[in-house]
Amino acid sequence: MVDGATRDGYGAGLVELGASNPDIVVLDSGVSDSTRSKKFGDKYPDRFFNMGISEGDMVCTAAGLAQAGKIPFATSFACFLLGRSMDQTLVSVAYSNTNVKMVGTHSGLAVGEDGPSAQMIVDLAYTRAIPNMTVIQPADWEEARQATLALAELKGPAYMRLGRSNVKGIYEEGSYKFEIGKASVLKQGSDAVIFATGSMVEETLKAIEQIGSDLDVTVVNISTLKPLDEATILDQVGKNKAVITAEDHNRIGGLGDAVCEVLMNHRVSKPYKRIAVNDTFAETGSASELYEKYGLSANHIVKALKEVTA
């Protein structure tokens, strides 16, 4: 298993794609060393377009490349990629149904010290609400690598949300196969199920370790936010007595809302706690300090577990 950031898994996936598919092109908006798209650019300079600090232009250029038959990956920091190109994403990418893969790195409070202007906490809400969009957030290096390959096979627009920080490897090449729209059960229990996404999968696994044998907890990685794996969600809610969702994102419009919508639609009611940013802008600080202060850390998950199972 590879320990590493999901952005590094993306860089590795892109390099693989560069070799296997001549239609893959990659764009960045002047931060390619940080987003790791530079890995592709170094190897395939003829198919790499650094558009400079102009995300709207980059996203529309990607749409044009797609209409010329290419498979563009438009990359930037999540905060700017979507923040600066909401309308371009709506009209030139999603409404036009172009084959553009948008990849935003450095998402969530996990980005840390750069502060709230860099901490993208609304991108899942943005992108989930857009028709035609597939929304993915891998949990570790290997899943990010595989998701990158899967996105190249997907026909249509998609957003992939990545993180800056290293996370512990969860998946092994060969024994795990990422599929768009498929959640993966990391641990089967019966007392409570935690649906987690992105960096919160690691945080959830830490919480499980802390709680030890006191509770028998199910952990499900929701790496595709849209389309949601409703079957797995309903199945696991049925098998467990309580439900928790965990995301490094604002509590509005993200994983929590998505899961609750499924449960309401199927008239399922269980004790529930949502781990998410509490509709506030955070502040500067290290990722772990922010996770502690803003309610995302393993400690908060443990507390939530105790409450829902009390």
């Binding site: 092109v25 377009f49 709207g56 232009d57 980059m58 996203v59 529309c60 250029t61 990607a62 749409a63 044009g64 490349l65 797609a66 209409q67 010329a68 038959g69 290419k70 563009p72 371009q88 030139s92």
Partner: peptide
Amino acid sequence: SVGHGIALG
């Protein structure tokens, strides 16, 4: 921008 993307492609 879109036209330019097509032109590049």
